[in-house]
Amino acid sequence: MLTAEQLAKVLQVSERTLRRLISSGKIMSPTRIGRQLRWPLVEISKWIEQGCPVPGRLRKGN
């Protein structure tokens, strides 16, 4: 599970930009563990491999 700081580094964006991506729905919602937000590494890797599609939108050909 990635923290917001780790995910921001993976995506090469600031944590502020990451928060904006979350707010706008352009990245998958995190899992809340207590007060912490976490993203599963496997899911993030798949998302990146698919070209970072906007969650909830159908991709052409699917």
Rank of each mutant, 00 (worst) to 15 (best):
M1K: 03
M1Q: 04
L2H: 13
L2W: 12
T3I: 00
T3C: 04
A4M: 07
A4I: 01
A4E: 11
A4K: 08
Q6P: 01
Q6V: 04
L7T: 05
L7S: 02
A8G: 09
K9L: 14
K9S: 14
V10G: 03
L11W: 09
L11S: 09
Q12F: 08
Q12E: 14
Q12D: 15
V13S: 05
V13L: 02
V13N: 06
V13A: 05
V13T: 03
V13P: 01
S14R: 07
S14K: 06
S14Q: 10
E15K: 15
E15M: 07
E15S: 07
E15Q: 14
R16Q: 07
T17S: 11
T17R: 14
T17G: 00
T17L: 09
L18D: 01
L18Y: 02
R19E: 08
R19M: 08
R19Y: 08
R20H: 10
R20Q: 05
L21W: 13
L21H: 04
I22E: 05
I22V: 13
S23R: 07
S23W: 00
S23F: 01
S23T: 01
S24I: 02
S24W: 01
G25P: 03
G25E: 04
G25F: 04
G25Q: 08
G25S: 08
K26R: 15
I27M: 08
M28I: 11
S29F: 07
P30G: 02
P30K: 05
P30T: 05
P30Q: 07
T31P: 00
R32N: 05
R32E: 11
I33M: 14
I33H: 07
G34R: 03
G34F: 03
G34H: 03
R35C: 03
R35E: 02
Q36W: 08
Q36E: 13
L37N: 07
L37P: 00
L37V: 00
L37R: 09
R38S: 01
R38G: 06
R38M: 13
W39S: 03
W39Q: 03
P40M: 07
P40N: 13
P40Y: 12
L41G: 06
L41K: 15
V42L: 11
E43H: 14
E43K: 14
I44D: 08
I44A: 10
S45H: 12
S45P: 00
S45R: 14
K46H: 12
W47N: 04
W47Q: 04
I48R: 02
I48P: 04
E49L: 13
E49G: 02
E49F: 01
E49K: 10
E49M: 11
Q50T: 04
G51V: 05
G51T: 04
G51Q: 05
G51F: 02
G51R: 05
G51C: 02
C52W: 00
P53W: 07
V54W: 06
V54M: 04
V54K: 13
V54D: 06
P55D: 09
P55R: 11
G56S: 10
R57K: 10
L58S: 10
L58Q: 11
K60Q: 08
K60D: 05
K60N: 06
K60V: 09
G61Q: 09
G61A: 12
N62W: 10
